[in-house]
Structure formats: C-alpha cells, structure tokens
Design a protein around this nucleic acid. Structure first.
Lengths: 179, 179
DNA sequence: CTTATCTATGTCATTATTGACATATAAATA
DNA sequence: TATTTATATGTCAATAATGACATAGATAAG
C-alpha cells in the first residue's frame, strides 16, 4: 500500500469524510488529485481498511462518507512503526532561480512577485486553519498534548506557518537583492 | 519537455558536467534518481539542446561530459518566461504526525529524533556548499548581484539554509511538547 | 578478508501522479 | 446572460518517477 493510502487512513482517524473532503484536507500536506484518491479509496474499501455509507444530498451531489475500520487502524499502527521516507520537494522556481542571470532584473522581480502572492495566500489559509482549530478546541492550542485529538493537526499547521513565514522572509530578502 | 530536463539545462549553464555529477548537484533542489536522468540526457542530446564528449578515465569509469548548446540556452530562456508551477512537497512524516496520538510519547520522540538527524546532516551539507561557494568567489557572497555567476546558487543555498533552520526549530519545539 | 561506498552509465518493469474526459446541480461572478 | 467556482464521483491514457537489475574498478571501513 502506498503512502497516500496511509495518509487517507490517517485523516479518517479523526473524522469520517467523503473522498472530496479527504482530497481538500490532505492537499496542504501531500499533493494529490482526486483522480488518484478515488481509486485508492475503492482499494482501501476492498481490503476492509475503510467502509462507506452513501449519503444522498438534495442541493449538492450525493456523496460517499468513508470511515476507518478496526483493521484500518491496525494497518496504520504498523505503518507508523516503520522507518519514515525522507521528504520530497520539487520546486520549479528553484531551478529557474539557479540560472536567473539569463533574464533581466525586471523579469526576475516579476517571477518572484508571483511566488510571493502564492506564499501570502498560503499563509492566510494556514491562519484560518489555526483559527478554526482554536474554535473547535476547549483549551488554548498551546496547551494541547499528544493525547488530544487536535494535537497532530495543531503541530502540523504550526510547522507549515513557520515554513511559509520563512519563505516570505526569503522573498523580502530577494527583493532587496534585486533592487 | 519536462521540468527536470530544464533543470538539467539550468545546471549546464554554469559548468559542463557528467550525468552522474548532474544527478548529485540537482538533488538538493529536485529529487531525481540516475535512472530518470540518463534517459533525459539522451533525449536532450537528440534534440540538440546538449552535446557531450566521451572522457576516458583510468582510475574511475569513463564518463560523458555534457555541455549546453546555443539551442539549449534558447529553450531555457523560453521556459523561464513561462508561468512557474507551484512547489510540490510530499513528506510522509507529516502524515504520521497527524495521527501521532496512535503511538506513545516514547515512539513519537524516536520518530522525531530520526528526522532531526536528517535535518542536521542537511544543514551541514548546505553549510559546506556555502563555504565552497565562498572559496570560489572573488567577493563576499553577500555582495553578489544578479549578473554574477554564483548569484543563483548563493540565493538558493541561503533559502535552503533558512528552511532547514526552521525545520530544526520545529524539532526543538516538538521535543518540548513531547516532554 | 569481506563488505560497503563511490565512481559511472545504462535499461526496464512497476508504481505514482497528472491531465483530460465525463456528468450534474447550485451559486456566485462578470 | 454567460462563465467560473464549488460540490461530488469516477475512468483512463499519458507522463513522471522509482527500484531493481546489470556491469565494473577503486577505495575505505569493519
């Protein structure tokens, strides 16, 4: 079973969710399109790691709401104990920046400006996520512990926020360099 | 042509390199195995974007040293002007951390400790890279400008250093949380 | 003395991932 | 009014990426 499948199981330990919702919630931490997720959910269902109920909706299309099974939880626990793969990053901008001398300052600035907008939006999204997390919590997020349900999400959003702040600092630094 | 192909061309704007060297130098910024790189180099050669000379070696296996052609440089310039893809990150640890409540504190600490070692090694590698960069430069790195040959590499290594420092700060923060 | 690592290039089957196609309704925006 | 966005699920061809296999000499570590 691939890493994304375990990722889907991980999300399902907190809430039952539709494939569409799973896609939206996993994307900040693992890039994946719906065309990859739906077939994997079908496989997980075949294997008995998840089960779903068909939920009819009047205003929106019907959906399948998936839940993790006891068997799925057991598979998850085994996966967590195994050695963890190293992170993989692929950023086209890095490759372009490497040979940035090929273009003039103006073009370079524009390239960086587009990316800065991307980072700002990302920061905003993580900010909202943190707010939503606080609203759903009965104690201040800083007091959450490993046993608390929201702990994992909290520490991940915290990390994401730290990283996007670093990206923005680099953008500012680059603007100075390209003045 | 895919992004990695352009990445290889980017590296070749600074130095002529063998496929093996290209693999080693691109990996910090774009994960790729030799089995992907060698076929792409053959394609780039077919298209006339790169050319190679066979270099016999006595102590080590022979190598093919690739150089970018004028045509390759033109392709690069066109690519840089196009919109840049958003970065893709896939980190299995994030998925595990999300459901970290499934394991006990001790196991969680060990998981994070392995990752911390990974980050420390990475930081060291980027530190060496920066040193090597300074040795090859006639002025202090902080004074490099867009026209300078080492500028792209310098700003990239700077970014990588900032990011890995952020990762390490998160690791320390997590150690506190898991005390 | 043996095993692992580094150098160096390559192929190929398998797996992972994307992008396009397909369908359908509601709401918001231009 | 027309187009885009969001909701919702799915298939399938094409592309990207990995891991295993193959070869081979040198050096380093255990």
């Amino acid at each position: 079973m691939n890493t994304l499948s375990y990722g889907l199981l991980s999300l399902l330990t907190k809430n039952s969710r539709s494939g569409y919702e799973l896609m939206l919630h996993i994307q900040p931490f693992w890039s994946a399109k719906h065309s990859q997720i739906y077939p994997l959910l079908a496989l997980l269902e075949q294997k008995g790691h998840v089960a779903y109920v068909h939920v009819p909706q009047s205003d929106k299309p019907d959906k399948k709401v998936y839940s993790i099974t006891e068997q799925g939880k057991e598979a998850l626990r085994e996966w967590i104990a195994e050695p963890t793969d190293e992170p993989v990053t692929r950023d086209e901008l890095s490759l372009k920046v490497y040979c940035i001398g090929l273009v003039d300052k103006e073009q370079a600035r524009k390239m960086l400006a587009v990316r800065e907008v991307y980072y700002r939006k990302k920061k905003e999204r993580f900010g909202s996520l943190m707010d939503k997390l606080q609203q759903g919590s009965d104690k201040p997020l800083a007091q959450l512990e490993i046993g608390d349900d929201a702990f994992g999400m909290y520490v991940l959003v915290h990390k994401a926020t730290m990283k996007v702040d670093t990206d923005l600092i680099w953008c500012e630094w680059m603007k100075e360099k390209l003045k």
